[in-house]
Design a protein around this nucleic acid. Structure first.
Length: 787
DNA sequence: GAGTTTGAAACT
DNA sequence: CAGTTTCAAACTC
């Protein structure tokens, strides 16, 4: 009897309790919302399950999560966004913990703030993210999760797109619900910021521009950055979840997104905006709100919306703009901001295009660069290897990363957790990412990778050849998980990236801790494990062996090779590979090393060893390696003198100068054998440069160079070299990289790079507690170095 | 592209 | 520390 009454009462009570207000609100909303909420909830769950990172991040910030879930489940994102956005604008600062949605909005707020600030410095962008938007970092992590850096970019894009979709959905729902107020709130922020002038335009333009930027950024810097930071995971997961939902709702395909994200996408979008946008705009907005059209175009690309009413589209676009802004902001604050300004001014898509190029330049074809950057993160060596462009990017990135240590730590924690999660095979996302990462992003990579070569071997060979590859070789590890010296990437202190064909790769930003810990172990076992095997000054002819004169051979193999059958005439021989002559350290049999036979080397080495030892002591352990190398070089000197070094001076000098490398050790000690063994040893790297220069000088090109070199060689160098980063590595690389001939040097240099030192230093100084930091630092230093 | 060779790295 | 195994690059076909 009572039961029915109770049941009814309970039902009523529950209904009331749940949300008299909320419930009514929901009712007011179109039926779709329930779906939406359902999706959101479902998506969240699924997404959590799927995306480890996101989960981790969520967990990291329980508050946020709780908020998110509650908010999401309860109300549409619109509400949430409203409150958040408004609050953000007012407060501007929000805890990094904010939920995904919060983050997204926070991003928008940050963007708006950025617009106010006008300054486009990347640092700001980075800072903002730390406060309110961790979005950037997260995606990166995710991406990192994906073995292939390439994939990461894709992920980033996806996330963005997805987020955009999500927002669209939200907007769409909101529109249906007629929650104009909410919209206003969301947009109001933008409008206020922008001047309230045709927010749509702004959004559109911004979006368009940002989109381009995003794309570029995603392909390049952003993604890398994100990965490095590791914060983004949540955002990504959210984005994906949203995207998933959206895809279901709209039935659109992510494919478009994926396809376009590639470098070409920017242009593609631009074109689309130019052409397609207008017509759509005309429909949507009679006035020349072409900007909107651009968004639509994007929408079309992403979603192929036809389902969404124009009105809705407009709103959606705005929201997208929000996201995009975030992304853009993150990616490149300056460009974005500029774009915004322009857009505010009056901008047409064209303007956006014009500006985008800047970012585009960085990104465009260089999906690989991001990878490099990531790799760099780990080691200075990577930086050294990386081209100048990369260097710069890194710097910017680094700066961005630097901003909030706290956030980094958090990120770290997230990463760690994420990494663990990642390992878990549970989520599809993970698998995909993993695949991408390890296997060269077959999946995502298609777009990004397509441009680049796909076959790892080819890549590797290319790298070997020296063209691009110098910077990084690509491994194809199968069993080592890229956590052993077998892995060239790992040995070089670089994260595995697209070109790698490795399997089960753990040498990724996501697994940064693992990588670092493994490294430490290896270093503990063998302090010189990551030290440059060979100090290479000039690679010139090594492989080619074309010009004996060019043989760089300045450096010698530290450990020495143990060749028996190769007679030190093949790449099997590290000495030969490094383009250096065999030294007394070598235990090779039948040495025929064209760069210098062991017998000859032995005597000199002994001397140099002594000298080197002294210098090493002076300069530091790290330098020891260099010293040895220097010693080796001394032996080589004859060659050097004989052979003019081709590498252009300017280039080398410029390379050397780069901030990161400033102190970098010059890989090759120029020291003349005669001379100052001690000096040479300390400065080996510089010596190398000096050598080349000296050679050049000898040739008559520069007289000054020698002096400079000498100066470099001077103790001052030692001090510099002592610098944790072991810049020495980078400089040489630069020089080397510049010179086409030098192939072998690359790897060697990388290895030699003291990046490890930094790590070691970190570890030593930072102990376990700082592991995350240390890792970060290590990474950051590379990037940070410039800062 | 698959298989072999080679020597370093890792392991015992 | 030496010997053995494992591994991935280098090389060959």
């Amino acid at each position: 009897m009572d039961t029915p009454d109770r049941a009814a009462a309970a039902a009523a009570a529950s209904a009331r309790a749940e949300d008299s207000p909320l419930f009514s609100f929901i009712d007011s909303l179109s039926p779709i919302e329930p779906l939406k909420s359902a999706y959101s909830a479902g998506s969240i769950q699924a997404y959590q399950s799927l995306n480890i990172t996101s989960i981790s991040s969520i967990f990291t910030s329980p508050h946020d999560n709780a908020q998110k879930e509650s908010k999401l489940s309860k109300s549409s994102f619109a509400e949430f966004s409203e409150s958040e956005v408004c609050a953000n604008e007012n407060k501007k600062n929000k805890p990094s913990k904010s939920s995904n949605a919060v983050r997204l909005f926070a991003c928008t707020s940050a963007l708006t703030q950025a617009t106010h600030k006008v300054t486009s410095s990347v640092s700001e962008g980075t800072v903002a993210p730390t406060e309110g938007s961790n979005d950037l970092p997260q995606p990166g992590q995710f991406d990192t999760g994906s073995p292939d850096h390439n994939t990461t970019p894709c992920h980033g894009v996806r996330s963005d797109l997805k987020q955009g979709k999500c927002r669209k959905l939200q907007a769409f729902q909101t529109a249906k619900t007629n929650t104009s107020e909410k919209r206003k709130c969301l947009f109001s922020t933008e409008v206020q910021l922008l001047d309230g002038c045709q927010p749509e335009k702004l959004n559109d333009e911004i979006l368009g521009c940002e989109w381009d930027d995003l794309i570029s950024a995603t392909s390049g810097e952003l993604i890398a950055y994100d990965e490095d930071h590791k914060g983004v995971q949540l955002a990504v997961s959210n984005a994906e979840s949203c995207g998933f939902l959206l895809s279901k709702l709209t039935g659109d395909g992510d494919i478009s997104d994926r396809t376009h994200p590639s470098s070409s996408t920017q242009t593609y979008y631009r074109e689309l905006l130019m052409e397609e946008d207008q017509p759509e705009n005309a429909q949507l907005i009679p006035d020349g709100e072409k900007i909107i059209s651009s968004e639509e175009i994007q929408d079309n690309l992403y979603e192929a919306n036809g389902s969404i009413p124009t009105g809705y589209k407009v709103e959606i676009q705005q929201q997208r703009g929000m996201r995009r802004r975030c992304l853009v902001f993150e990616a490149t604050g300056s460009s974005n901001r500029i774009v915004q300004k322009e857009s505010v001014m009056d901008l047409s898509v064209s303007t956006c295009k014009g500006k985008n190029p800047v970012q585009n330049h960085s990104n465009p074809g260089k999906t690989p660069s991001p990878r490099v950057l990531r790799g760099i993160g780990l080691h200075l060596n990577a930086l050294a290897l990386t081209p100048k462009d990369k260097m710069v990017r890194q710097d910017s990135i680094a700066s961005s990363l630097v901003p909030s240590s706290a956030t980094q730590q958090e990120l770290h924690g997230k990463l760690l957790s994420a990494g663990e999660n990642f390992v878990h095979p549970g989520s599809e996302l993970l698998e995909l990412q993993m695949d991408d990462d390890c296997s060269a992003g077959v999946f995502l990579g298609n777009d990004h990778n397509s441009s680049q070569s796909n076959s790892p071997q080819k890549k590797r060979r290319k790298a070997d050849n020296g063209d691009d590859g110098e910077a990084c070789k690509r491994c194809s590890c199968k069993k080592s998980k890229c956590l052993k010296l077998y892995c060239e990437c790992f040995a070089a202190g670089v994260y595995c990236s697209e070109p790698c064909s490795c399997q089960g790769c753990l040498n990724k930003p996501i697994h940064e801790e693992i990588v670092l810990s493994t490294r430490k172990q290896i270093e503990f076992r063998n302090p010189l494990a990551f030290a440059p095997k060979v100090i290479r000054m000039s690679d010139a002819g090594q492989d080619t062996g074309e010009d004996p004169n060019n043989t760089p051979a300045s450096a010698r193999h530290k450990r020495g090779c143990n060749c028996k059958k190769s007679s030190c005439l093949k790449k099997y021989c590290e000495c030969y590979q490094g383009g250096v002559g065999c030294s007394s350290n070598c235990r090779c049999e039948g040495c025929k090393n064209t760069f210098g036979k062991r017998d000859a080397a032995v005597s000199t080495e002994a001397e140099e060893m002594k000298q080197g030892g002294e210098e090493a002591e002076n300069c530091g352990k790290e330098e020891e390696n260099d010293l040895q190398k220097a010693n080796v070089q001394s032996e080589d000197h004859p060659f050097l003198e004989l052979v003019p070094i081709t590498p252009p001076f300017d280039v080398s000098s410029s390379l050397l100068k780069p901030p990161n490398f400033s102190s970098a050790k010059p890989p090759r000690p120029t020291k003349a054998r005669t001379g100052n063994s001690s000096r040479s040893s300390s400065k080996a790297p510089q010596a190398v440069h000096s050598r080349k220069f000296s050679k050049i000088a000898d040739t008559g090109l520069n007289e000054e160079m020698p002096d400079i070199l000498r100066d470099d060689a001077s103790p001052g160098n030692c001090v510099k070299t002592s610098s944790p980063n072991g810049k020495r590595v980078s400089p040489p690389h630069n020089a080397l990289s510049v010179s086409p001939s030098r192939k072998g040097g690359r790897k060697l240099i990388l290895k030699s790079i003291p990046s490890f030192p930094s790590l070691i230093g970190d570890t030593s100084s930072g102990s376990a507690t700082n592991n995350s930091e240390s890792t970060f630092n290590t990474t950051s230093p590379l990037a940070l170095g410039p800062s």
